[in-house]
C-alpha cells in the first residue's frame, strides 16, 4: 500500500476495524441479494416511468379516474390511521396497565393482522359487513360494505398492530415515578395523562400513525373484496394498477405505481425524521 493510500484510508474508512470475521462476505452477499431482489426491479420501474417523460407521466396522473383512486387510497388510509391512533393507543394502555382475564390472549391477538393473509381478512370483512352479513345487517339501510367506509374498516384492521406495537413498548418503559411526580406537583389523573404521558408518547404515536398510514395506502388484498371497486368512488389506487396491467396499459400502471412509490419513500423519510428528532431531543424513541 502506498503512503498516500494509507493516509486516505485513515481519513475515510468504510468500516471500523474489528477482529470479527465475515464482514466482506456478509455485507457483499446482503448487498448483492438486496440489489437483485429489490433495487434492480425498482430501478426498472423508475426507468419505465422516465421513458414516459414528464408530459406522459402527468397525462396519466391527471386522469380523473387516477386522481379519484389516489384520493380514495390516501383518504381512507388517513382516516383509518387516525382511528387506529385513538384505539391503538387506548389498547396499548389497557394491555400495559391493566390486569384482567384474557389479557394475554388479547395481547397475542393484536398481531392477527400481521399473520392473517390479507385475502382471508378481505373475504371475512366483506361477508361480515355486507348488507346481509352479521354486522352489516345491523346497520341497514346504512351500507358499510361496498363503500369507502368499508375500505376504512379493512384498513383499521390492517393498521391496528402498527400503532399498538409501536406505542406499547414505550408505554411499558414509562417510569411510574414520572406519574407520581406529576401527582405530587398537584396534577390530577387527567392532567397527568394528557399533559405528561401522552406528549411523551407523541413520537411513538406519530411513528405508529405513519406506519399504519403507509401500509394502508398500499393495501390491496383485504380491501378489494369489501370496497365494491366502483370507479371514482371506491376504487383504490393499487386496484387501478392491476386493472391497467390487465388492459396491458403498462404505462398507466407504471405511472400510478411510481407516484405511490415516491409517496412511500416520503413516508419512510418522515418516519426516520420523527425517530431521529425524538432521539435527539428525548434521548430515545
Amino acid at each position: 500500500m502506498t503512503a498516500s493510500a494509507t493516509a486516505s484510508s485513515a481519513g475515510w474508512r468504510l468500516k471500523q476495524p474489528s477482529i470479527i470475521p465475515g464482514f466482506g462476505l456478509t455485507l457483499g452477499f446482503s448487498l448483492a441479494y438486496l440489489s437483485l431482489i429489490i433495487l434492480i426491479p425498482i430501478a426498472g420501474l423508475l426507468w419505465r416511468t422516465a421513458e414516459l417523460g414528464w408530459s406522459g407521466f402527468f397525462a396519466i396522473l391527471s386522469d380523473e379516474r387516477t386522481i379519484r383512486a389516489l384520493y380514495v387510497s390516501f383518504g381512507t388510509a388517513f382516516i383509518a390511521a387516525l382511528i387506529n391512533v385513538v384505539f391503538g393507543t387506548l389498547l396499548a394502555w389497557v394491555l400495559t396497565r391493566y390486569r384482567f382475564p384474557g389479557r394475554r390472549l388479547i395481547d397475542a391477538m393484536v398481531d392477527l393482522p400481521f399473520a392473517l393473509p390479507t385475502a382471508v381478512a378481505g373475504i371475512a370483512f366483506a361477508s361480515l359487513y355486507a348488507p346481509n352479513g352479521w354486522i352489516g345487517s345491523l346497520f341497514m339501510p346504512f351500507r358499510i360494505a361496498f363503500t369507502p367506509i368499508g375500505i376504512v374498516i379493512a384498513l383499521i384492521f390492517i393498521g391496528l398492530p402498527f400503532v399498538v406495537r409501536t406505542v406499547q413498548p414505550i408505554m411499558e418503559e414509562i417510569d411510574k415515578e414520572v406519574e407520581e411526580a406529576a401527582a405530587t406537583l398537584g396534577a390530577n389523573r387527567f392532567q397527568t395523562i394528557f399533559n405528561v404521558l401522552l406528549p411523551g408518547l407523541t413520537p411513538a404515536i406519530l411513528t405508529g400513525f405513519a406506519l399504519a398510514f403507509a401500509r394502508g395506502v398500499g393495501e390491496y388484498g383485504s380491501v378489494i373484496f369489501i370496497a365494491g371497486n366502483i370507479p371514482y368512488v371506491s376504487e383504490i389506487a393499487p386496484l387501478l394498477i392491476v386493472i391497467r396491467l390487465e388492459e396491458f396499459n403498462y404505462a398507466g400502471a407504471t405511472a400510478i405505481a411510481t407516484i405511490m412509490l415516491l409517496i412511500s419513500f416520503a413516508m419512510l423519510l418522515v418516519i426516520n425524521l420523527i425517530q431521529a428528532w425524538s432521539r435527539r431531543r428525548y434521548g430515545n424513541v
Binding site: T184, G186, G283
Partner: peptide, 18 residues
C-alpha cells in the same frame, strides 16, 4: 397527594423528558 402540597424529589428525578 395532590392536596398535600409536598415537594418530592425522586431518586431518578422523574423529569418530564418532553
Amino acid at each position: 397527594v395532590q392536596e398535600r402540597n409536598v415537594g418530592f424529589v425522586f431518586q431518578h428525578y422523574a423529569l418530564f423528558r418532553h
